[in-house]
């Protein structure tokens, strides 16, 4: 997959920033998307195009367990988040939704907003065609890959419980 990078040169971007709690009385991706990132980037929705990628520093998605954070980003058109590290619950929520969260050390220093990134999951590399660079990332663990490939945790378990 290929998309344009939106960089937040920061660590600890938290779930209250991704989707403020005042909007937690809704849960549709299209409704949440209207407020994605609004407290740190009022222009977010106008900038993002379907297929884009967020790039950030350490501990992305820290704070609350609200899966609304993943839905808001996906609803806005974001297809993957690449960060130095992720907060645990956010990372789980991404996998469980079949949404790509990729840990790639020092990505935050290397990529700038507007760069065109291609994520090659099979080979564990991100290609930055704007800068002519490549970055290696840690392969997504097999178990997580199975969930992502199934399209999320509920699809993955569906066979077991039906």
């Amino acid at each position: 997959m290929t998309g344009k990078a939106h960089c937040y040169k920061r660590d600890h971007i938290n779930t209250d920033e991704i989707i403020p709690a005042r909007y937690l009385n809704m849960d549709k991706e299209s409704d949440l998307a209207k407020h994605a990132m609004e407290d740190i980037d009022a222009d977010f929705l106008n900038k993002v195009k379907d297929g884009d990628i967020i790039v950030a520093g350490e501990d992305f998605g820290c704070g609350s367990s609200r899966e609304h954070a993943v839905w808001a980003l996906r609803g806005a058109g974001i297809r993957a988040v690449v960060a130095d590290t992720f907060a645990r619950i956010f990372y789980r929520n991404c996998i469980n939704n079949g949404f790509l969260a990729i840990e790639c050390k020092h990505i935050n220093d290397k990529v700038d907003s507007g760069d065109e990134l291609t994520i090659d999951i099979e080979n564990g590399i991100i290609i930055n065609s704007s800068k002519n660079e490549q970055y290696k990332f840690l392969a997504i663990p097999g178990f997580a890959r199975e969930i992502i490939d199934a399209g999320g945790l509920l699809n993955h378990i569906a066979g077991k419980v039906k």
């Binding site: 367990s65 469980n96 939704n97 945790l153």
Partner: peptide, 24 residues
């Protein structure tokens, strides 16, 4: 809910998850 860690104070393994985890 992220603050589910609270209940470890009583010697339980207690952790916060998202809605899909909860559903599963």
């Amino acid at each position: 809910d992220s603050h589910t860690s609270t209940h470890g104070a009583l010697g339980a393994f207690s952790t916060g998850v998202g809605s899909t985890d909860l559903a599963a």
